[in-house]
Design a protein around this nucleic acid. Structure first.
Lengths: 233, 233
DNA sequence: GGAACCAAAAAGTCAGACTTATTTGTCACA
DNA sequence: TGTGACAAATAAGTCTGACTTTTTGGTTCC
């Protein structure tokens, strides 16, 4: 499913990346390239490539005569899909899921508003199809099929916004939605109110009603926040 | 000021990164590692490290027997600070500035709302100081000092939100604000209404009035959108 | 006690030989 | 004529060993 895997250096990253993002090496820890190369049984060149990638993610900094230093969390490129995946796979998963859901609550309503202005006829059709698919699978433990349409729905919204920054969050949102279904609400049918909201958003986008699309999407994301007990008291 | 520079591979990236993000090599273009190494007069190991970094940014994909293929724009990690810097430095600057401003308009109001709930007394004080600094430099062509406080203001809002994803956008917002001043409005004094809004946001955050902080910040970002002729008709 | 100097350590760089996967082209066979 | 298997070419991938450069920390001398 996930990650690079391509090449030896990718194999090393699959182990080292999750370890670092899991906080296994506290910030300030010093690693030595040669020792790592030995530990992973690869040549120094391969290990150097792996370190370079970690460095470009700001997970570590390499300094002469010192070694490879693990950087504090606030330095990390937390928008790097790879980093996000590593963190979602580790103990930081709940916190990562929360921060991503808050990000969603900021981005998706605005994206929906823009989609209402910029969506093509084709995108409107696809959006409606997704909403209908959600309705059709909203009862009777058809969570897998429901999730499929839910993910597709949000992906269309984000790409139809016409903003590349929003569009690039589609994969992240997909993983949040998938993760939520697979952990919290796995056994219950989805909230009927949420399903209705999706249908209404599709309508609003089709009608070109930006304000309404934004407001309705805001209600959807508020629901997502409440699921995680992130409330506005 | 900017970029890595550290090491030979960094030097290579300083040239290759901007070239690729500028679209100098159309998507699908094939580069060969050996040829690049020759062109930049570095060893293959160094060039491989550079390619690995570009690969982790999803700017290129390396495949055996084929070469290093330039990926289409929609694959790029557009949230990577390095990529953002490269694009801001090139011909794509206006478009990049626009998409980032739209992102700001989505994120900052929500961040301000969260800041109103989570900001410490110290952060509130700093925010007020920033707002006052803006007022003090809002007249008489003191744009540099004004910008300094403006940048600091937005940085405090984003970090005080308590959300790591928002906090990591502080540098990006800083560059947008700086870029805007250095190009568009360089010679005019800032809009008095905008200055007032900043003061009011600081007040709202201090008072813990999340809804008001969010609404006022929304007005600020709407102004930023209007400056770039991104309107809501 | 401070400044200059020296030695060690670890990353950085390079060159060359070798391996492996993938593509493309060719040839034989149906 | 089309199709499948096989062979050759190609470029990335890997490994090794020697060398360079920077930085740090200690030591010595004034």
């Amino acid at each position: 499913m996930s990650t690079t895997g391509r090449g030896l250096h990718g194999r090393v990253l699959d182990t080292l990346g999750p370890a670092i993002t899991a906080g296994e090496y506290p910030p300030g820890s010093v690693l030595r390239t040669d020792e790592l190369a030995q530990r992973f049984d690869v040549s120094r060149s391969v290990m150097r490539e792996a370190v370079r990638v970690l460095e470009s993610m700001h997970l570590v900094a390499s300094r002469r005569r010192v070694g490879v230093t693990v950087l504090p969390e606030q330095e990390w490129n937390v928008y790097d899909p790879q980093v996000i995946r590593w963190r979602l796979a580790g103990a930081a998963r709940p916190r990562q899921l929360r921060s991503l859901t808050v990000l969603r609550s900021a981005v998706e309503p605005v994206a929906a508003g823009l989609a209402a202005r910029h969506a093509t006829a084709e995108q409107c059709a696809e959006l409606t199809a997704c909403a209908l698919g959600m309705v059709a699978n909203s009862r009777g433990h058809r969570l897998e099929a429901y999730l499929f349409h839910d993910v597709a729905f949000h992906r269309v919204i984000l790409t139809a916004s016409g903003n590349e920054m929003f569009a690039r969050l589609a994969d992240v949102v997909a993983e949040v939605l998938t993760g939520r279904t697979q952990h919290e609400v796995m056994f219950e049918d989805p909230d009927p109110a949420a399903v209705t909201l999706h249908v209404q958003v599709a309508e609003a986008v089709r009608a070109g009603d930006a304000a309404r699309a934004e407001q309705l999407t805001r209600e959807i994301t508020v629901g997502a926040l409440q699921e995680l007990d992130i409330l506005a008291p």
